[in-house]
């Protein structure tokens, strides 16, 4: 499918080259503008419509709880269509060193965003996170994150499925990411304790 989407890929890369990645990395407003720009460039393209159509009809499976369709990918960025299913919420996870923007193309989704309360050592398994946002997004709404802000989030589709155009700048190495699960025990204001599960630890044993 990536071969088929090569024209889109090329166009997206060209568009990206006109923007400053370094600026975008820290600037949430620019991130949102960027993903909207991509969408404006791609929305009327036949192949992109086909890809969106495929994402809208995607089905969840045991091995693939969310559906991903790459539109464009370089070492510095990745653009794709993400389908989140109501029956398979995405747990809290981080994006180390990465920025991103996610534009809702169809359906509705709840996104909860968090930040670290304190620096997390690589060996810390119990951490405190601060809830910074909890919002329901519909078509044309956008959520963003940077390395320092809102970098941890969880998603839950409100409708049967929700399709997002997802942009990542400096795509992280998936092996170093973590999942976070609430301990449901200590809570003060928006700060709560979470158990952290590191993906690399799991993969190393497989």
């Amino acid at each position: 499918m990536e071969n088929q989407s090569r024209p889109l890929f090329k166009q997206a890369i060209t568009a990206l080259n006109g923007l400053s990645c370094n600026q975008g990395l820290e600037n949430e407003q620019l991130l949102e503008q960027t993903v909207r720009y991509f969408y404006s460039q791609l929305a009327d393209q036949h192949l992109f419509k086909q890809l969106v159509n495929g994402s809208v009809k995607a089905q969840p499976s045991l091995s693939s709880p969310c559906h991903w369709q790459t539109v464009a990918k370089t070492p510095e960025m990745m653009l794709g269509l993400l389908t989140v299913f109501h029956i398979a919420p995405i747990p809290l996870h981080d994006h180390p060193g990465s920025s991103g923007a996610q534009l809702v193309l169809s359906g509705q989704i709840n996104i909860r965003q968090f930040e670290k309360n304190a620096a997390i050592d690589k060996n810390n398994t119990i951490v405190t996170l601060i809830g910074v946002a909890d919002h329901d997004l519909g078509r044309d709404d956008c959520a963003t994150y940077t390395p320092m802000t809102r970098n941890i989030h969880g998603m839950s589709a409100i409708t049967t499925r929700c399709v997002l155009l997802s942009l990542q700048i400096n795509p992280f190495d998936e092996f170093i990411r973590s999942l976070f699960f609430p301990l449901n025990i200590f809570k003060q204001d928006r700060i709560a304790y979470y158990r952290r599960l590191r993906k690399d630890g799991l993969l190393c044993r497989q």
Binding site: S63, S64, P65, C66, H67, W68, T70, M78, G80, L81, L82, V84, I90, P91, H93, Q102, M155, L164, S166, Q168, E174, F175, R177, L179, L197, K199, L202
Partner: peptide, 11 residues
């Protein structure tokens, strides 16, 4: 999610 190959993409 922990055993999914897909985790780590655009979400």
């Amino acid at each position: 999610f922990i055993f999914s190959d897909d985790f780590g993409l655009g979400c």
